[in-house]
């Protein structure tokens, strides 16, 4: 058998992966990225010769002033109460925030919003406003407005939660299958019924995961809001720092790391077991 031959020998186009203008853009973008990185590193003025010295000095400072941590300080009932306060603050803020974020996620999802003209942009704007202001700035603002205590911390965490969860929940809604939505719509259901019957079952697992993840992030933020006067264990950190009680600071920082770590493990474990149970 001969190798197959085209009946008419027609000139075939030559194929190359990179063609002229596109390849130029690619190299230009790569060059710009690297150049900008070099320029930004230059701003840091890292002194390579002193780098080992810095590490050594850091160790010295830590072992001189911060070691050993005053563990008994974080075992006092006042501090433990503050930990519980922090937990309660994050819990209330997460639930409040989710209650606000869930309808906003419905209104602010492009595929399911009841009104693309009004509710969609309004919901997106609210979520974006909550996101664009950093939680620490919310706290500074709210402490200035309502004064010290748990209230400004809880409110700030609620706003943070609206911004954080609002976006994730809406993205989950935008990823649903459209077919069931049409089927429920075709039966004469109204918009709320369509949401409850065709959308919620599809996002239930994702939304539960997002809710728990949100709590975990809110809790982490809540451990330090006290530093700015908004209640909880962060308050103790500020006092110890101001009194230059470095060994107390060390104990508090270690306790925060440990508690956040445990919270994260807990949240991951709950998320896993829930998605196994109802997935």
């Amino acid at each position: 058998m001969n190798a197959p031959v085209c009946a008419v020998a027609k000139p075939l186009p030559e194929w190359r992966r990179f063609r002229f203008p596109q390849s130029l853009y690619k190299y230009a973008v790569a060059l710009a990225t690297l150049g900008f990185l070099a320029w930004s590193l230059d701003v840091l003025r890292i002194d390579v010769e002193r780098l080992p010295g810095i590490l050594g000095r850091m160790f010295e400072v830590l072992s001189d002033r911060y070691w050993p941590p005053h563990v008994h300080h974080v075992l006092e009932s006042a501090y433990i109460d503050a930990v519980i306060d922090t937990f309660q603050m994050s819990y209330v803020a997460t639930i409040l925030g989710l209650l606000i974020a869930m309808p906003l996620a419905w209104f602010g999802s492009f595929n399911m919003t009841p009104s693309r003209r009004f509710l969609y942009p309004a919901a997106r704007l609210i979520v974006m406003a909550c996101r664009s202001i950093h939680e620490m700035i919310w706290i500074i603002l709210l402490v200035a407005i309502i004064g010290f205590g748990m209230l400004p911390g809880t409110l700030a965490m609620t706003l943070f939660c609206v911004g954080f969860a609002g976006k994730l929940l809406a993205e989950a809604v935008e990823a649903i299958r459209k077919g069931p939505v049409e089927a429920v719509r075709a039966s004469g259901a109204n918009k709320l019924q369509v949401f409850v019957f065709a959308v919620l079952p599809q996002v239930r697992v994702a939304w539960t995961g997002i809710a728990i993840y949100t709590w975990d992030v809110v809790f982490r933020a809540a451990t330090v809001v006290g530093f700015f006067g908004a209640g909880g264990m962060g308050h103790f950190l500020r006092e110890s720092v101001q009194r230059v009680e470095s060994q107390q600071v060390a104990a508090i920082v270690l306790s925060i790391v440990l508690i956040v770590f445990v919270a994260e493990l807990l949240s991951a474990w709950i998320r896993n077991s829930i998605s196994r149970a109802i997935g």
Binding site: G179, P180, E182, A183, V184, A186, S187, A198, P201, R204
Partner: peptide, 19 residues
């Protein structure tokens, strides 16, 4: 919506709510 109740629909992809 009220008229849709009078018109049943069956789909290629079934479009059931799986969960």
């Amino acid at each position: 919506r009220a008229e849709r109740r009078n018109i049943g629909m069956i789909f290629q992809e079934f479009n059931l709510i799986e969960r």
